[in-house]
Amino acid sequence: MSRVTCGTASGCADCPIAAGFCLPESLAALETGRRATVRRLAVAKAGDLRKLLALGLMPGVEVEVERRWPAVVVRIDRASVALDEALAQAVVVSRQRSAVGRQKGAR
């Protein structure tokens, strides 16, 4: 999985996914306050897939990162869900162009 970071001055002009989105990366790599759209679930085990689906994480869903430590917490619909870093690694997202979230919180 490519982990190209976005946010360059040129923005997302050459993003191949869709206008307004950037190259795919892992949910675990996003900073607090960042909004992103889930693209793909790259799980190693079928069991992990069921966990992510149970949390409501599936392609097309918009998330906002609320916290990265001690576990990743994301806002999805109107709920907060927590997942550990290993699971968050499996969620491939593309970040939205503008981070509308609040200022960076504790790490």
Partner: peptide
């Protein structure tokens, strides 16, 4: 057995 993973709705 496999290592545990954490996932939970808050």
């Amino acid at each position: 057995g496999e290592a545990p993973s954490f996932f939970m709705e808050l």
